[in-house]
Design a protein around this nucleic acid. Sequence first.
DNA 1: TGCTAAGCTGACGTTTACGTAAGAAACCGC
DNA 2: GCGGTTTCTTACGTAAACGTCAGCTTAGCA
Lengths: 161, 161
Amino acid sequence: MSATANPTPLPGDESDSRIMRIGEVAELTGTTPRTIRYYEEIGLLAGGTERELGRHRCYTHADVERIREIVRLKDLLGLSLEQLSQLLEAESARAGIRREFLETDDPDRRHALLLQSRGHIDTQLRLVRARVAELTKLEADLGERAERVQEKLVELETERP
Amino acid sequence: MSATANPTPLPGDESDSRIMRIGEVAELTGTTPRTIRYYEEIGLLAGGTERELGRHRCYTHADVERIREIVRLKDLLGLSLEQLSQLLEAESARAGIRREFLETDDPDRRHALLLQSRGHIDTQLRLVRARVAELTKLEADLGERAERVQEKLVELETERP
DNA sequence: TGCTAAGCTGACGTTTACGTAAGAAACCGC
DNA sequence: GCGGTTTCTTACGTAAACGTCAGCTTAGCA
């Protein structure tokens, strides 16, 4: 028996292809239903398609991953949701891109899609690295200050027994 | 002629001991007068002492440095101003501590002040390092994704001339 | 001494990122 | 098919971090 054949997956199970509702997704991502709806409202999450008004939103594991990524970038880089929208704009149709990638057989088209994906990842990498550099500089500055204080402490301790 | 003897220091001059008003400080720190007043209002900046109501606030280069540090920690660590207040609480009396350090001759007291200063710096260092670790993990994850895309690109290019 | 730029003190406005509440509708197990 | 839970939409509320405006005062200098 494979895990994917399990007819009733465990809650919190991260295997793909399960369909979840907003409450579960919120728990899995450490957010709230309101937050998820808000992200959809401002266009940060797709969700708008293929759902008649009034019916329950449904999500896949890919959506959970995306929300986790949003939260991570938001918290770690301190980006506003609007900045995130722009940053992830290319990726916002990620599911669509992936689908198109799998559906098409045109190598040129696949090539273009891959390039687009790589560009998007590179942008994020640049941001992260710049931030790491700034933090490293801050760490160095703090280290210097710590050292100066330490010197004075040693100095003081040698002065008196 | 030494630079410090210059009776009219250049604007933007970072030499100590000049007394500035809020507009200049705002420019030097990339903030606005309103922001500086607000920081004072919520107790993040001292300023409350030694100034009769209604008179102009005056600042030294040490204040500029402190504001720069606040902005830096706020932006890089994404801390709220209240969190910053707590983090810098010990340091908030920094000028006072420094003065007391210079004034006192009691080695025990000086020792205690130095230890306090070191503890404060260490707290900041821990925060910075934790953040760097998280960002480094994010960088690694992005790197993996970039690699996978790159592999597919190469794969695609070898398939067709 | 008089003028002007800059600063002062309230006080209200604004944006972001959600929280919260209400009433109705959808889903699910039995 | 029905009760109970979850979700839906709509709409108002809120906390943080300032922006902005008004009316008045201060500081510096010609």
